[in-house]
Design a protein around this nucleic acid. Structure first.
Lengths: 154, 154
DNA sequence: ATAATTGAGTACTATTCTAGTCCTATTTAA
DNA sequence: TTAAATAGGACTAGAATAGTACTCAATTAT
């Protein structure tokens, strides 16, 4: 189902909360109670986000977490790869081992293309976009979508 | 990692083989031996593709599978959803149950937007595109990618 | 200095999902 | 009627995910 893991989903919830109130640092406990996510789980996610340089942590009393940079500069792609590793639809996109399928490998290049397309799309969406309320069914945006892969061959 | 399942990967391999030679029906056994995928697994995939109306099956001796329509009319999105169910990054995108996260739900609409964007991108790539050889690192296509979601709010 | 607060790191467990296999029924061509 | 082939479902083993717990390290307030 092309799904993100729950942890990634939680991460966006946590980050969007922090983006809305970035005036001071937030302790893990505070975040847990506000979002309703269990504390150990919140901690785990926050640590991953710190490692990915998305958050900055301050230890000790009065410590906590805060965004490492403005919400406009935090892409959804970076959040996803912080939690789930590199964005790659197929196996071969990560490990360059190559597949043993003799006849199938001709499509790998195309998968990489699709992969890149999706990656770029996710790269273009920032945390700031997520915080803003979604437009209701505004059909205009559908026309805006470009289909780069298919048009490659024309 | 935003991964597709192996079965979906196999499915594209199988379908691309069938797209290249759509002159006659292919038995599951034939497909298995050519692609190197185990027969029971191939059968399972083929059945799912038939249910999704992507393939047509003929029973009995001299039976087999063939594409239900031209490769140009088979989108990658339809293949993915045949194997993995509806394309949805987050839980809420499928079940309208709603999330219990009190403060997080404001971003659901935005997830749906991203979701739709990716879905449309995948919808635009067809099996025929996959069969064609991939262009080598032609950087031109990168510029072609449009970032519809972020630009929505400007 | 010392105690309290808070994050860092690691290890562990249970549950869910995925991949893959097998068996039996049904259909059709020869 | 027989052989070839798909249809459908049930089942198992393994891997990945989600969530928890515990101990160490750092900082600040008193």
């Amino acid at each position: 189902m092309l799904r993100l893991s729950k942890l990634t989903d939680y991460a966006t919830v946590i980050l969007s909360f922090m983006a809305r109130d970035n005036s001071h640092v937030h302790a893990a406990m505070e975040i847990a109670s506000i979002t309703g996510i269990a504390l150990p789980t919140v901690s785990k996610i926050l640590k991953l986000l710190v490692n990915a340089k998305i958050l900055i942590s301050t230890r000790g009393a009065k410590g906590g977490y805060e965004l490492a940079r403005a919400a406009e500069k935090i892409s959804i792609a970076s959040v996803i790869s912080a939690l789930e590793g590199p964005i790659a639809l197929t196996e071969c996109s990560i490990s360059q081992q190559g597949c043993e399928q003799a006849s199938g490998c001709e499509i790998r290049g195309n998968w990489n293309l699709i992969n890149q397309t999706i990656h770029n799309a996710l790269e273009s969406v920032t945390l700031a976009d997520m915080v803003r309320p979604a437009r209701s069914q505004d059909l205009a945006w559908k026309q805006e979508i470009l289909i780069p892969v298919a048009s490659l061959y024309r």
